[in-house]
Write a protein that binds this DNA or RNA. Structure first.
Lengths: 192, 192
DNA sequence: CTGCCCATGTAAATGGTTACATGATTGA
DNA sequence: TCAATCATGTAACCATTTACATGGGCAG
């Protein structure tokens, strides 16, 4: 139900069209909740059926018509109730760890390649997060409190990828030290 | 597709029944991939249809009959191919951050309550991870390499919850400093 | 004239949760 | 006698992904 609540959260700031929301979910929000346009349009029409939001159709000449959604009483109540409800820890589903933990049957070079390739992707992601083009929207914050929350949401992304990166690098150097360098040593001894 | 690959990964160690796998997914694996028994039984019958695994029915008197699944050639190939394929970063979906980032419309006490309640749940989870009853299965590792991978998978869980906890505590103290203490100060000044 | 932006959707498939269903054995 | 463990599944639903579909305007 988080997608619907995220949408209600945005509509609580100001009215948006499905397309607007899709752009939001492709921007900074993508760092903590991802959604496709298909999902968003469907959620919006369901929210309209449930009387949480109201539609306003805007006629346009130079581009297709727009449906702008407004948050109404019932939707606002639902949003506030949800925001006040403490959440349980989410079930974890980490594909990389599944792969990693079963990789004992592979060769050293394959294991190392998987780790290095994942490190590269995380570094790229981190560069992207740190580049500062996610900090633009902070100026739309309606209060100091909101700005604080948004800044820390962004920081959360950076911290968790940094943490991930730290773990990966430790794994990589640990792996090499235990299974590669010692092989070389063993080979040297054998040769000597 | 990760659930099926995880199952293939386990069957590559030794044959298991659906029930056995379910217990595994409720144990240490639950820390990086969660699955219900419904899902597991369904995946197993699909894997059997796809000729990845073979079923052996074991007649039992004192309890219901068992279906033990064995990994066969095609399944093993599929497993190895998947293990060698570098993965993309998974899309992030963090309910807590959705709630957190839209909480600017709540009262201080509600925001603080949500953070504190999440902190408690993470502390509990961390105690559980650190308690050591997930380290038992390490003795089943078939090689030093496998033991290394399993230990680091476990460590990943601990590190990421510690990281989460650090962020939450920073948020909480930052929030109080900025929005609570200064209120008290302001009130004091007003009173004076 | 090619490709991107605007703007909306439908349909099919896959993945995951929740509720329902059965039935014997064993230990508190 | 009550609850847990063993052992398997079906059915309905909700969430997510991917492919298909349309069509004008505008910039390089």
């Amino acid at each position: 139900l988080s997608l619907k609540h995220a949408i209600l959260g945005f509509l609580n700031m100001k009215p948006f069209s499905g397309y607007d929301l899709w752009k939001l979910f492709n921007g900074s929000v993508n760092n903590y909740w991802s959604a496709t346009h298909t999902q968003i349009y469907k959620a919006l029409s369901e929210l309209a059926e449930e009387k949480m939001v109201e539609v306003e159709v805007i006629q346009q000449e130079s581009s297709p018509n727009k449906k702008v959604y407004h948050l109404v009483g019932l939707g606002k109540e639902e949003l506030i109730t949800w925001l006040k409800t403490p959440l349980e820890l989410a079930p974890v589903r980490d594909r990389f760890l599944v792969q990693f933990s079963f990789s004992g049957v592979l060769d050293d070079k394959d294991i190392i390649h998987n780790i290095e390739s994942y490190i590269e992707k995380i570094e790229e992601k981190l560069n992207n997060l740190r580049s500062g083009h996610y900090t633009d929207y902070l100026k739309f914050a309606r209060s100091k409190r909101e700005k604080f929350l948004w800044e820390n949401t962004l920081k959360h992304g950076i911290l968790s990828y940094e943490n991930e990166l730290g773990w990966l690098r430790e794994c990589l150097s640990g792996y090499k030290m235990l299974f590669i360098d010692s092989d070389i040593k063993t080979n040297r001894i054998r040769k000597a």
